[in-house]
Design a protein around this nucleic acid. Structure first.
Lengths: 238, 238
DNA sequence: CAGTGGTCTAGACCACTCC
DNA sequence: GAGTGGTCTAGACCACTGA
């Protein structure tokens, strides 16, 4: 029993809603009912319900109750950090990762600027191509500060680097900033991706921070235009 | 005094951090200190701090304290519903809105599908071009269900439709789903925008829902590739 | 060890919706 | 009026950090 009460309530309902066991439009038990059925306090129940609201599962209306939303169309919420491996599992297509390079090298001026270090300082560079159903769709270029990540190998790069960082190195990833824009394709893009003559790529820049607020990774994800999609769930800030 | 205590604490610190009055890296007063200095309870203080966390202003570390993050590079968070008018204010460039059409018409099959109604049912259609520094960059196509929005005029379309909906019609906008993808430019795009020969546009589909969970608006925002940017702040979900 | 944030409790009053 | 969610209180115990 290491799970919190409110986490457990949240997980229970999140599962039921995601699996469709509780259909959209259903009214959830009131906070008072949940309070007694879980024999806990109301603030704890409210914490669980607010989590459900934030994740887009339910909608609360004052004086009426909590209602399950229709998340059927929410294909995959990329909001929240999502790595390629998690994503490909959700999409359920045949995918493959081709590691192009895993080296520790001197930072170019533009990379140094992104990582907030000096040009020429050493950085780990990992370049990977993501193949989806036989087509090379995504080019991932990752850069890590070597004071945080000492060693990287091709084997690690082929799997999930995040798993390695979190479970082996015990780095706690805290938050990230994403920027999405469209740029002209580079020679590298044309060489490594199946662009089919497309002149631009979607560029997702990702700045990843640790718990101590230090930036330690910068990633450029270069997507083929026609295969890119980003879904966001937004709540009106009152 | 209609403002909540926790809202007021949040606003105070959000302003100070955004204005730079509290620089990044600063340690905020502890929850106990805030508790007594605002003469309120700790849970209330925590509500305010959690809001600051969710908005990316601060970072809490157990056993240490709350620290101000470096949001200097967070240009404008488009996460959270942001209308064009809000956005243009933040960018601070000269912008103009050109209303192309404001009519009540029969829904085409694709629009009907998006709005979850039958083809041919009446919908309000508003088509606007956004001009930034003399160039026509964005094409906004809005569709409203007429059972919610009875009347729209060109004057309203030229201003902020959201203001009208919320303040005059008292519609409560609750949440929205955004999809970002890239599509081939249509003849309409080429006619209404200054595409400079670009063959594709960034398409932002926006589904807006009311408090009673009914979908009432669908918007297509078609952006010129080279002027599009989207910034997202994401927290690792534990 | 003292200080920090994370969780939880058992109450309270309010604003709102629906009948 | 009864029932709902929104806010708030004054405590409590825990896990973690740092000196």
């Amino acid at each position: 029993m290491k799970e919190n009460i409110y986490q457990s309530i949240f997980n229970t309902y999140a599962k039921r809603i995601q699996s469709g066991k509780i259909p959209p439009g259903t009214k959830l038990p009131s906070e008072n009912e949940l309070m007694s059925s879980y024999s806990t306090s109301r603030e704890t129940v409210r914490k669980a319900l607010n989590l459900l609201v934030q994740h887009g599962f339910i909608q609360k209306i004052r004086g009426k109750g909590s209602y399950v939303l229709d998340i059927g169309r929410m294909n995959f919420p990329v909001t929240g950090l999502t790595s390629f491996k998690e994503m490909s599992g959700k999409i359920g297509r045949s995918t493959r990762t081709l590691v192009q390079r895993t080296v520790c090298t001197g930072a170019s001026p533009s990379i140094a600027d992104c990582l907030q270090i000096e040009p020429g300082e050493p950085v780990w560079e990992v370049i990977r191509v993501r193949e989806i159903e036989g087509e090379r769709i995504i080019l991932d270029k990752d850069y890590f500060r070597p004071d945080k990540v000492v060693l990287l190998t091709e084997e690690l790069a082929a799997g999930s680097i995040y798993e390695y960082l979190e479970q082996t190195l015990n780095l706690v990833i805290s938050y990230a900033k994403k920027e999405i824009s469209v740029e002209e394709a580079t020679d590298e893009d044309r060489a490594l991706l199946d662009l089919n003559g497309l002149t631009h790529v979607v560029l997702v820049r990702n700045f990843v921070f640790l718990e101590d607020t230090t930036l330690f990774q910068y990633t450029e994800s270069r997507h083929r235009l026609d295969k890119f999609q980003f879904v966001d769930f937004a709540r009106r800030i009152p």
